[in-house]
Nucleic acid binder design. Structure first.
Length: 365
DNA sequence: AACACGGGGCA
DNA sequence: TGCCCAGTGTT
């Protein structure tokens, strides 16, 4: 396939494509909060938030985040728990942890100034090939490719590239195409224009070809292949996992919560005590009682079934049965403690456990 | 190369 | 339901 690409690029009207794309972006671009200025820190935060996350979802988080952590040093000096709380609900929480790690590194090794070379910026935690190119081109005007899902979709159509965009190594093919076409006068507008085009015009289904600024140059449009491209392999279905959750109240009316491990799923976030069970388990409340009494030395009473919650992640499904019990114990440590529901709201909780404390709160009213 | 890693929106 | 989203780190 790569041989074809060279041939296609040779005949491709590069200047026309560049100009049409850049002009369109400059006149039609959306007014987004991270486009206020070129502060590399602001661009950086936006690019991390936008990973696998829609613009409309990001906007309120971004505004709140920039208000809370206006500068790189504000973020570097913040407590991780505050950063996670600001990220709560956005998902992929390692993004927040890695961003803070990287920001501290910039503070220490680069005198607080975000590095402007591909080699240096790529070493930062959480900054992969896409984000490196995005920050360099948008904040510093460096002509580096920033290939994301939008760009692969757009280019697969523009140049009729039929390599599977779900296969990671194929990203290099698209980087090569971008390098061959990118505007050196305005790499920022070129890269953002590609993404803007993917978001607004060259959408996955029902692309608005009649409104497309580069329809003239689009080989897929010319050949009637727009609906056949891009090629993308299917993802695996998430695996169901059966969990039991204990809502345990002490004699002051407070609830037991625990902090998750510092690695893996929902790292360092708080939750109601949870245990995995075999999917065919019948006496879930007894399993739960055994597990919790073992782990926390609770003198808990009987566990009564409350309700069930299903929660879908990208790679698994939690099927949770929630039980309630009273305890006379009051044990606490670094990673578990008794809190009021209002105190829960000050700590970073994954959405699925927010659902649980909201249900509890509702039933108490 | 495959998998882990969230959550929401939309046809 | 299934797919997609301004991807990266780990194994």
């Amino acid at each position: 396939m790569e041989k074809d690409l060279d041939a296609v690029l040779t005949d491709f009207p590069k200047d026309k494509f560049r100009d049409h794309l850049v002009d369109w972006f400059l006149s039609e671009k959306r007014d987004l909060p991270w486009r206020e200025n070129k502060d590399p820190y602001r661009i950086w935060v936006s690019e991390i938030m936008l990973q696998q996350t829609r613009v409309d979802t990001v906007i309120p988080y971004y505004n709140q985040f920039m208000q809370q952590f206006p500068t790189l040093s504000d973020l570097a000096n913040a407590e991780e728990e505050k950063v996670l709380k600001a990220w709560e609900g956005l998902g992929y929480y390692s993004r927040a942890r890695n961003l803070q790690t990287a920001v501290k590194e910039v503070q220490e090794n680069y005198e607080g100034k975000v590095p402007s070379t591909i080699d240096e910026i790529s070493k930062l935690k959480g900054v992969g090939p896409y984000t490196a190119g995005a920050i360099l081109s948008i904040a510093y005007g460096v002509p580096e490719p920033a290939v994301d899902g939008n760009v692969m979709r757009v280019f697969s159509r523009i140049l009729t590239i039929s390599d599977d965009i779900g296969v990671p190594k194929n990203r290099k093919i698209f980087e090569k195409a971008v390098k061959a076409l990118i505007s050196h006068d305005n790499p920022s507008a070129f890269n953002q224009g590609l993404m803007e085009l993917g978001a607004l015009i060259c959408t996955p289904t029902n692309p608005a070809c009649l409104l497309c600024p580069v329809r003239e140059e689009c080989l897929a449009f010319e050949k009637g292949l727009v609906n056949e491209l891009p090629i993308k392999s299917k993802k695996k279905k998430p695996k169901p996992l059966q969990l039991v959750v204990g809502v345990i109240q002490n004699q002051e009316g407070k609830f037991l919560i625990q902090q998750r491990p510092e690695n893996g799923l929902l790292a360092n976030m708080w939750e109601f005590p949870t245990a995995e069970v075999e999917s065919d388990t019948v006496q879930k409340n007894e399993i739960l009682a055994f597990f919790l009494n073992e782990k926390y030395d609770l003198q808990s009473g009987k566990f009564n079934y409350l309700f069930s919650v299903d929660h879908i992640f990208s790679h698994l499904i939690w099927k949770m049965d929630v039980f309630f019990a009273k305890t006379t114990s009051n044990v606490e440590s670094e990673t578990y403690r008794f809190v009021t529901l209002d105190e829960c709201k000050e700590l970073p909780f994954p959405v699925v456990h927010q659902k649980i404390y909201q249900q509890i709160e509702k039933s108490l009213l």
